[in-house]
Simulated scan of single mutants.
Amino acid sequence: MSVDPTSPVVPLASYPPAPPDEYRSRAPEFYGFVSWTSTTLLFVFFLLWALLPDEFIVWIGVEWYPSREWALLLPAYSIVLVLLTYFVYFSMAIARTPSFSDISSFVDSRAHLPASGAPNPYLKYANPDAIPELYDIPIGIVNRVMYGPQNRTKGTGSIKEE
């Protein structure tokens, strides 16, 4: 039984849709194989260079090779580089995060808000059966609906006792 990718039986279709089999390239398989084999060969050469004695390497016919101290320095520098990368990205994320009092904490540049000069478009939808236009609701209205009218005393920040 053939099922349409967006039928009620399978409501979610993959995006982007997969191309037909006859048009798929096998290049990623070859690139993956070449990168895997070259990485493995480089690692084997690194281990041989780091562990074999000098006499054996010269006997093989290798006249010049880097100093053995690089066998320790390269992994150590690599670990430091990875840790430094994590630290830099974490620091950049903290530096770019807006403060809690900034309006950009909860409203972004893609918000679809009503025009500022127009009357409040939400008041005409006070009927619970009404379906409003699609807008992002401003945070002030959300707070009024969620927490009721402003019952805060001035200056103290605490809620008035009634």
Rank of each mutant, 00 (worst) to 15 (best):
N143K: 11
A93K: 07
S78A: 07
L48E: 05
P98F: 04
W59P: 00
S99C: 04
R144D: 10
I79D: 03
A126C: 10
W59Y: 15
G117H: 12
V88H: 05
I57W: 05
L47W: 12
I79N: 06
P119Q: 08
P98W: 01
P149Q: 03
R96N: 13
M146D: 02
N143F: 09
P66S: 05
L51S: 04
A115N: 10
Y135L: 07
L74G: 03
D54L: 06
A111M: 02
Y125A: 02
E133W: 04
R144E: 15
S104H: 02
R110S: 15
S99I: 00
L52Y: 13
D102T: 02
V58A: 14
D108C: 01
I103K: 09
D54Q: 11
L74C: 12
M92Q: 08
I131T: 15
G140E: 13
S91D: 06
Y89V: 05
V145L: 10
I57Y: 09
W70V: 04
W49R: 03
I94N: 07
Y135E: 04
M146R: 14
S67I: 04
E63F: 07
P128N: 02
W59G: 02
A130E: 13
W59L: 14
W70N: 05
F56S: 09
Y122I: 01
P138F: 07
Y77C: 13
S101M: 00
D54V: 11
F56A: 14
W59I: 07
V58Q: 12
D102H: 07
E69G: 06
L51K: 07
G117N: 14
A115L: 09
L113E: 01
D136H: 15
P119W: 05
M92F: 04
L123D: 13
F100H: 03
P149L: 03
D108K: 02
L123F: 08
Y135K: 00
R68P: 09
I131E: 13
E63N: 13
A130F: 11
K124C: 01
P114D: 08
I94C: 06
Y135W: 15
P138Y: 07
P114V: 10
R68S: 11
W49D: 08
A130R: 06
E55W: 11
A76K: 11
V107D: 10
S99T: 09
D136L: 05
Y77Q: 06
Y135A: 01
N127R: 15
Y125S: 03
R96Y: 01
Y86N: 03
L134H: 12
A111S: 14
S91G: 15
R96V: 00
N143L: 13
L47D: 05
